[in-house]
Design a protein around this nucleic acid. Structure first.
Lengths: 167, 167
DNA sequence: GTCCCTGCTGTTATATTGTAACCGCAACGG
DNA sequence: CCGTTGCGGTTACAATATAACAGCAGGGAC
């Protein structure tokens, strides 16, 4: 199918387009460091998956990665999914549940913050913001009924500013 | 696969288990009324899909519905998906993005409220709460970057009270 | 060294979830 | 009668995700 950015290059105003080579390198360096610190193995496969995500202008589906990595040598879906699972557990990438896509994590995630994803229906870009108010309110909401949250998916679908401006 | 409630019957404490016949009837009556008011067609197929969701103790996957409705006469997935789409647009059911499942809407949805879904990893039940604080915070978060939200998915995964109490 | 265990990845096959395209039919208004 | 519209049936298929098993490299116990 190809979910990788239908977005036209050119009209970018935001910090969260991880496609310039420099940003990608930073992300990768950061991932390396995180793995070193946590004693996790940033293997070649995992690195290649992460690199592709870091280099992409937007979130990618698992099969986008299968295709992109398969240019050189065939890689099976399951391998990609295993790498994605590892990267998610390491806190290096996120999954967008609304789209079944993945993207590199753009923030350090403070304990008291909830990440909010803004998914543009037009250009496909995803913006990632952190909010402690929402974290607090969600915790309160869960507490009302004795629910103990383990993970969160807070995703808004709509139209981003640049798409709105160019109607 | 069968996502319909692995939960043991018996240990229920909450208002959001739509399985007692009475609650199911209420939901259906409400759905009928909504459709009448909005001039939408609550056809037999749509009704049967909705009835199954209303009668279920927890959210159901599309193929659960295919199977359940197919007992009498074979129904194709696409038909079920069409009915689900209709019901979602009518605001009668919700989709849980984390699980690819569907459940009847348990609230009237005020304009200034965001619905929060609490998905129990253990029993599979989903609790649905509304929060105006979260609605406000999400609107503020989106406004920060000029994003215009159209739809929202706010889902917490974790352990519900009754599962936690029975470890 | 040899043995075993663990973690990572490959291979094959399959399950699960979701759509496309096309058709017939009933209802409704002209 | 006739066209249009909305609904749902049928067939086929696309897209997403996982199961089960095998090999292999590295490290520690002995």
């Amino acid at each position: 199918m190809g979910k990788g950015q239908a977005a036209p290059e050119g009209a970018h105003a935001h910090h969260h387009h991880h496609h310039e080579p420099h940003e990608a390198e930073q992300l990768i360096a950061h991932a390396e460091q995180v793995c070193r610190e946590k004693g996790l193995q940033f293997t070649p496969l995992r690195r290649r998956v992460f690199e592709r995500l870091a280099a992409s202008a937007g979130p990618l589906g698992a099969y986008d990665l299968v295709e992109q990595l398969g240019r050189e040598r065939r890689i099976s879906p399951i391998s990609v999914y295993r790498a994605l699972e590892f990267l998610m557990e390491a806190g290096l990438i996120h999954r967008i549940a609304l789209r079944n896509t993945y993207l590199p994590c753009a923030h350090e995630h403070g304990a008291g913050e909830t990440t909010v994803f803004l998914v543009c229906s037009t250009c496909g870009n995803v913006d990632e913001l952190a909010s402690s108010e929402i974290a607090r309110d969600l915790a309160g909401t869960a507490a009302q009924v004795g629910f103990r949250p383990v993970s969160r998916a807070v995703e808004l679908e709509g139209e981003c500013q640049s798409c709105r401006e160019s109607e």
